[in-house]
Design a binder for these strands. Structure first.
Lengths: 221, 221
DNA sequence: TGTGGTGTTTAAGGTTGCGTTAAGGCCGGC
DNA sequence: GCCGGCCTTAACGCAACCTTAAACACCACA
């Protein structure tokens, strides 16, 4: 399992590197944003741990460019600031998780494991594939067999989140959280409506419901 | 699983309560530190989520007194301030983990699950294992050998509590206590019905009966 | 500023299935 | 044998979910 740590604070890197390595990860370390931007093309990392406050090139910009260039590996961002907006920006730019400094080193391990598990078999391509369904992120459309199915924005966002977490139980509140940033209504059935739309387009069996618990994407298995 | 949320910000509590309950936790809610101090003696909570900035009595003081009085349940503290010193104080006072506001609600869930797993001595793996049975907390389903067994909410809650206390005698009233919050009836056979359902799904031998005493989870040993 | 088209959200009513209750049978202990 | 605790089953109510349509927001373009 190959990781890239992008962190300019030497003391922190010195702390994290042995910990990660002790737990069986092969870790490369860079301290500069510009280096990281290039390096991610040379090696196929399973996960990147990215500090947002970097010399050379800001972490958020690095991440944004990676995604523009079609690099889809999971990214865990570290932020020194405790700003809600920045985290949301990070998530929008394509990060998979975030951690606010300071943190317990063990906590980083937990997140790394969680993100890796989540991204298992999925997040590595521009065209996201899971359970017999493909998602074209540029055209915002899904593919079943050889036929393209056009999606609206909301449908696409929901399907993407499902496909990034295939076969996993996603509660309605989790879907709400991830599809609408923060200030969303509580007593609304938007999620149900869009799930209904996806089922119409892709077939009723692609999303299963677990009453009282949530939904899970199982595609056409 | 019985949780106590001590949080005076109503908006936050309104957000967290349904989330936690959606994920199968029975949650009691208090807004005052003095109430919390007393309440933790009356009920046997599996975990307490404790805001440090409280009216009545400061959260840190509450925690300190609990520990003095011999109460050892896991405590997850919430702090609005981004102060490192305060967190250290919290950990010193006997907290098991902390979370800085604002946070993603999902993050709280991750921590709650992690703390509960840690406090019951098992490793921090998303999949809880005991006596030849595995429990997938994300999918809320059990695994026997390689086959997945889907569980309803009530079944999942009960099985999780059994698996966190394997090979231990759990009285019917204790199960009632931990699976339902304060305002629930006591003279019913809900527990028996759900034990029956679990036995049907997992096999009759996984839960043994000690007549007049309670039940114990022995899995497939 | 209007107008139409597209996409999203709200609202209302119908449907489903989980959780609970209740009733009857069973079994173990005294 | 009898009683009390436990098991099993079926049925019911209600919350959760689905479905549909209409209201609404947004944008392009006149």
């Amino acid at each position: 399992m190959r990781l890239l740590l992008v962190e300019d604070t030497v003391a922190l890197a010195d702390q994290l590197l042995p910990l990660l390595r002790d737990h069986g990860y092969a870790v490369d370390w860079l301290a500069d944003g510009r280096d990281a931007l290039v390096r991610a093309h040379d090696d196929d990392f399973d996960l990147v741990i990215l500090d947002l406050g970097l010399p050379g090139l800001d972490g958020l910009e690095v991440l944004r460019r990676w995604r523009e260039q079609g690099l889809g590996m999971p990214v865990l961002i570290l932020t020194a600031r405790d700003s809600w907006a920045e985290r949301v920006d990070g998530l929008r730019a394509g990060a998979d998780d975030y951690l606010t400094k300071p943190f317990h080193p063990e906590e980083l391990l937990l997140r790394v494991q969680a993100v890796l598990r989540r991204s298992h078999g999925s997040a590595n391509h521009r065209r996201l594939q899971a359970c017999g369904v493909a998602l074209d992120e540029e055209r915002q459309s899904a593919w079943l067999d050889q036929t393209e199915i056009e999606l609206t924005g909301a449908e696409f966002r929901m399907l993407r989140y499902f496909m990034l977490n295939p076969r996993q139980l996603l509660s309605k509140s989790a879907l709400n959280e991830h599809l609408y940033d923060g200030e969303s209504e509580r007593d609304s059935n938007v999620v149900e409506v869009h799930i209904n739309r996806l089922r119409r387009k892709l077939g009723g069996e692609v999303i299963q419901t677990r009453r009282g618990q949530g939904y899970l994407f199982t595609g056409r298995d």
